[in-house]
Each structure stands twice: as C-alpha cells, then as structure tokens.
Amino acid sequence: MSVAPPLLAVEGLTKSYGGIHAVRGVSFSLRAGEILALIGPNGAGKSTCFDMLNGQNRPDSGHVRLLGEETTGKKPRDVWRMGVGRTFQITATFATMTVRENVQVALISHGKQLFNLWGSAPNVDRGEAGRLLELVGMGGYADRPCGELAYGDLKRLELAVALANQPKLLLMDEPTAGMAPRERVELMRLTAQIAREKSIGVLFTEHDMDVVFEHADRIIVLNRGMLIAEGSPAEVRGNPQVQAVYLGEGLLYDAEHREGASA
C-alpha cells in the first residue's frame, strides 16, 4: 500500500545458546498504533526474541529495524533514544525514589540533562511528570516512595516511565504477570487506549489468553523458536497448529465458550 517502512520490521532473527536454537529465523512487522501479542508456550523463545528487539541481547543473525533504521547490535540505551520504551516482566524501578522522581529521571535522560550538575532536579519537568502519572492513573501517588507501591501500581509506574521519551514503540514483557485479574484488564485497557491515542506500536508477550484475545489486534505464535502462526485473534484461535501446541491448556474449551459470550 505504501512505500514507507513499517514501524518495526524483524527479519530472520536467530539466536542459539550452544546447541539450543532458542530463536530460529523469526520475521514479523508492526505498524504504528497496532497492538501485537507475541505468544507461545514456556521455552518457545519469547523472552530471547524480546530481548533482541531492544538490544538487551544480541542476535546471531537477522535484523531489527525501526522505521527502516537498523537497531541490531545497538545498546539498550541507544535503542531507547531511537524511541523504544520497555517494561520488564519483573518490574525494574528506582526503589529509593518517589514515584514522581522515577518519571523525572526518565525525563531528565530524555532531555539530555544527565550531566547537569547544577540544576534543581525536583523542578525538572515536574509538570510533565505529573501529566504522565495522571495518564496512567497514578497522579495521587506522586510523592509516595516507590519502594512501598503495590505490584500493580509498580507496573503502571513502569508504563509511565516507558512513555517518558514519547516512544514510537512500546515493548512490554508479560505486562500483567503477577497481577490480580481486574488489574490486568485495567492495565491493558489503559495501554491500548494510550497506544491508539498517541499512535504508539505495542508489542507484548503474555501468558494470559484472556488478555491476549481481548486486546491484541494481531497475534504471532512462537513454538520452539519458530514462528508457527500469525493473524487476527480469530484466525490464530482457529489455527490447528496453535491448538496442537496449546492443547491441554484449556484453550479450546475457553475459545468455544467465549465465542458465544463476546459475540
């Protein structure tokens, strides 16, 4: 349709650890504003794949391009500067700082103020930090020490931090792991809303199929390091290969029951 490169283009991504082929020739792409779920059973290579997208891990071969620009081989911090935000499966935040300060650090980095020795950090981008916190529903927690937040709130804080550099692409590794069911729905609804409003592409891995089928525009399925299916939630749900991989996890049963409920 258009000649403009996709937001994210992954081509033939491959990674082995010794004799184990963790990821074998994975290719896919992602458009701006699209929410793409990467699913697969344990050990399918999701995390390895994910880590190669933002430079946490280096692929043996293959390419990752962001708006046509190569990110392979770059460090995570450089990939971030290209406009890729990320949240972690186990939240990583600055535990001794307040919620607002956590966001401010990201804004300081985004504004290239890291080596400013003389400014007053509490006043740096205070308003912008507040707006980001409001956006994820954490406005009332701004002055709380981050170390005492509940897990679900930490996930929302991570989202605010990841949004601080106005990313084009958001990578979320199991964003709802360890959360209560209602929190999961809330967080993903929030993410989807932000992504659509700001036209951010979102790639997330997830084990909870309710979350996946409800929020993903498109799903790619990984098994034993290889891409075995790709398509809309309905297509993937009906794919016999995917069903075979997931059989025994109750997906078929789930799917049948839900068809009637959500239609």
Binding site: N54, K75, P76, R77, D78, W80, R81, R86, F88, A92, T93, F94, A95, T96, M97, V105, A106, S109, H110, L114, V161, A164, N165
Partner: peptide, 12 residues
C-alpha cells in the same frame, strides 16, 4: 537503584 531500568531509559 536499578542498572537494568536506568540502561533502559538511556542512561550510560
């Protein structure tokens, strides 16, 4: 506080 997070927000 967190090397992982600071690296992920562009801090060397």
């Amino acid at each position: 506080d967190s090397l992982l997070r600071s690296e992920a927000i562009g801090i060397n």
